[in-house]
Write a protein that binds this DNA or RNA. Structure first.
Lengths: 226, 226
DNA sequence: ACCTGAACACCGTTCAAGT
DNA sequence: ACCTGAACACCGTTCAAGT
């Protein structure tokens, strides 16, 4: 009646790229970027490191696939019944929230060129920019700027999350940052000190959206001025 | 008269954090991010790996210091006799050009929170935003958006440079990307395909500046509308 | 105080050998 | 065709021992 001692050796399904990517996402979510190891992954899948290489060419591809898997789920659904602005906001927030839930995605997106999932976002944003009647010559610039901004925030958020020790909460972190800013040299950092207070009562998500709106207003400004 | 055979063992100056950082920058510039190794660095400095740890706490600090050293040189000089817009453009271009010359800086900035040199940029941009008469409550958002955009482009440029094999030139790279885009599914990627052509005759630097102008126009729009 | 370099505890990746 | 796991060629970092 007794199964063998030690860990339950369930090894039902065969290995597959999909299972490997799922396991990688799980590992990244639970133990972070530094915890994704071929050995750890192999143990998680109850196999040896070498087996993984049969389905995946290497760590770079694995990380890209894991990122794609997460981002892909946010770029679904139609946005036909919203204003272009709202549709763009929704797309941007989708990426933002995905990164908020999986900080390693932010780091990955920030250091990758436009791969499948972000290209998909690019396309969706592009259509909405067309809907805003932005002149053809300015469309690429407009979409690129939005994408760069989104990816910039992505990288920054990921960096902040990494700096943040797992236990500490955000409020303490922001308080500490605000305190540091407030102590900077008054001559060299006059402006930074004046906004240090705003840092404390700062809502990342709202701030992100405000930035999107700023760029959107710049984009529609172009149109209006012609 | 003959010195010893083998490499000239010049080992004049003693080790110092500064010399280590300089050597790290040199190594990063010549052999790239993956080439910065404590062993390679030690050899470069004609010493053992352990010696470096006497002056530097670890690789993270070393990379941050190397980045600071490069960015610091771009944030010098005054911008009192320019319009706020021009001063912001100059600051942004300074960061852009530094990253263009040292791609690893872009990767590093994109994955770091605001450390000394970028905080300095933040301050300088902030002062110009104040000069633009942006309402106090909107200043933080405006500067943050500009910084996120700059860092987003930084990360993207670094990623592109990394993807680009050292030998190949940019034109071929852009051509290849444009060709890929043009072949995407017409239904799924209608917009992307229409701008694929612009990708080919695309000037990174001009595009970057156009994005800055877009955000600037959004920022001044806020002011004008009140 | 500062340097040396062997040693430790890891990595990603490969590959002969198995099934 | 797919899996195994030892082995290779690295890493960053530490630390006893030297000067």
């Amino acid at each position: 009646m007794a199964t063998r001692t030690g860990r339950p050796e369930r090894r039902q399904e065969p290995l597959s790229a999909q299972r490997i990517v799922s396991a990688a996402v799980e590992l990244l979510d639970t133990v972070g970027e530094s915890g994704l190891t071929f050995r750890a992954l192999a143990e998680h899948l109850a196999t040896g490191p070498g087996a993984i290489y049969w389905h995946v060419t290497g760590k770079t591809e694995l990380l890209a696939a894991a990122t794609d898997a997460v981002v892909a789920t946010t770029v679904t659904g139609d946005d036909t019944d919203a204003t272009p602005q709202d549709a763009i906001r929704a797309l941007a927030l989708g990426v933002f929230d995905a990164i908020d839930a999986h900080p390693w995605v932010g780091a990955q997106l920030a250091r990758t060129s436009w791969q499948p999932p972000m290209l998909r976002v690019f396309e969706r944003v592009g259509r909405q920019v067309q809907a805003l009647q932005v002149p053809r010559a300015a469309q690429f610039t407009a979409v690129s700027a939005l994408m760069s901004y989104i990816l910039g925030v992505a990288g920054q958020n990921a960096a902040n999350t990494r700096t943040l020790q797992p236990g500490a909460d955000r409020t303490a972190f922001l308080d500490a940052a605000a305190a540091t800013w407030a102590e900077l040299d008054p001559d060299d950092y006059a402006f930074t000190r004046t906004v240090a207070g705003q840092l404390r009562e700062h809502d990342d998500r709202a701030e992100f959206l405000a930035g999107v709106d700023l760029i959107l207003s710049g984009i529609t400004g172009i149109t209006a001025r012609r």
